[in-house]
Amino acid sequence: MRSDASRGMIFSIQKFSTEDGPGIRTTVFLKGCPLRCLWCHNPESISRNPQLVWHSPRCIGDLACIGACPRGALSGDEKGVAVNREACESCGNCAAVCPTGALEVIGREMAADEVMSEILKDALFYRQSGGGVTFSGGEPTLQHEFLLTLLAACRNAGIHTALDTCGYNRREIFRSLVPYIDLFLYDLKSLDDELHKRATGVGVDLIIGNLKYLDSTGIPLWLRTPVIPGYTERGENIRQIARFIRDELTNVKRYDLLPFSNLCASKYDELGIEFSLAGAPLMKEEEMKELEAITRGEGLDNVVISGLMSRK
């Protein structure tokens, strides 16, 4: 895959995004992530390459796809299609002939000006709502040259920018982005290095270091913790983060507690990836309230819970 200053790999551009920063926003999702969080709710964001998916409910058994594949990677009958992942190169020939869009290649290489023209379509709404653009992923800094181009173009157009990041990248990359960013949405799962490794595949030191650095730049931060059963849900984990925010950071404007969601399970199936938390329960509303109370007890005032919860 190419990623340079002018082209990058995008897997979705979502308009009227109301959960990724202030106002009405467009969220641009960049593909590729260095972390392997067990609960990842965008599994299609992990790989940097395009990926073929088959949406079974949309398939009408037309089977034009099978003949269209140059590598013979597809097989199937009226009931459905199977993808041989070893053979498939995600060329998209099958998706092009599929009448329903049941076959789809996730991830498209886009030119920066193509992305910008989508972003600019909603400029009116950003202006009226105090919104803007959020770059998310994946981990958008993995395509940092491309990201930089987009950020600079947004700055040029006077559009508010937010970066949704896991914080796992080299310091100089963050340093290069800082001049173009108005808000960081920063994920912090845990301060416990061992737990962090177990849950995400990487240690937390680099992430903490970058967080402290970004905090020192004076740019506002919204810190976010996904609350995952069996991993980050413990009160002690949340308390440590809250104390860290209170004692060591100065620019955190808001703290989001994001309860675990299982709505992504079907995406794992479609990608042919195993979802190890498939059976995990949703967080209960009262448990989330307790966590919120802990953070408030530690002195945080702007704490927000948003997401799917069970009522009992």
């Binding site: 106002g23 009116l124 709404f125 202006r127 009226q128 709502s129």
Partner: peptide, 22 residues
């Protein structure tokens, strides 16, 4: 859920204001 709290209701208000323009 899109208008669940003050923050989101204000986003709706902004949407309406945008509508006056286009």
């Amino acid at each position: 859920s899109l208008v669940r709290d003050r923050e989101h209701i204000d986003k709706l208000a902004a949407l309406l204001r945008s509508y006056t323009e286009h």
